[in-house]
Amino acid sequence: MLDRKFLLAALVLIAAVFLCGCTSDGGNDTATATTAAPTDTGSAATPEFLKIATTTSLDNTGLLADLKDRFEEDHDVTLQIIAAGTGKALEYGERGDVDVLMVHDRAREDVFLDNGYGINRRVFAYNYFMIVGPESDPAGIAGMTPEDAFVTLIEQAQTNPDVVVVSRGDNSGTHAKEKAIWTSAGYDYDTEVAGSGEWYVEGGQGMGATLQMANELQAYTVSDSGTYLAYKGDIDLVPLVDEGDVLLNIYGAMMINPEQFSYVNSEMAKEWINFLITPEIQQVIADFGVEEYGQPLFFPALGNYEILGVTPEEAESPIP
């Protein structure tokens, strides 16, 4: 009697599992398919997955989800998007755990390419970083240059407890940019800024979460303009500093070098990157979010290579 009841419970659970296998078309079947993928890539069969490690801003804004749907419409592939900071994405790339990187830290990208881990970088979008903070602006940085704003923030924070800065603190592209601004403002980041007091909060999370945290603390933080606009409705922070060459934020996509990691899905990786720089998709990027947020979250790289300081090839030439 008892055991029968247990058996019944077990059956119900098993049924639930099977049901899940069918409805979530990505359970059972895909798991086996992925394991088989590395051997398939060599043959003529179309690879089914493309693993993309991306900076959180492209994902948090919803841009990638939009592009993913468009790409999957006419390609026989499932994009698997792993949103991590640029630092972590580069780490995944160096370990050969993904096929494509979409990141925004030119300096570290250059090192990555020089070391032979990645090839065929193309820039596909850009926007600007901004320093956002509470509307009351207790440190009074509105309208300053980024460097002056940072000097003011760190000086004010010593005496005014209302001046708090939240940092990504996660080696992401945004964090790298913040460090670069500290350096050009004349501070040694590791000794004078990081861990230097309660005013400097290292959140260790993605861009969206960091904006939310800064909002809760009524603190200052550095954000890319895209994520800020996407979150603007939920938070009270306002952009205080948004002009300065140092604030340019360039998004690049690159393939993992198949000579380093033979199993990567380089065919589809190439297709994806070339897809990103087509005039059609560049227009999609330019229009993304305009309806919802009143202004674009990202600008297309097409035709703007001079602003970006890259070669026209890097912005416009498809990978052969």
Binding site: T34, T35, I82, R95, G96, D97, F261, Y263
Partner: peptide, 15 residues
Amino acid sequence: RQGPFGFLGLLFTPG
């Protein structure tokens, strides 16, 4: 992929 069981290609899968 750099680990001892990397050849299985299991990272980032439900398995």
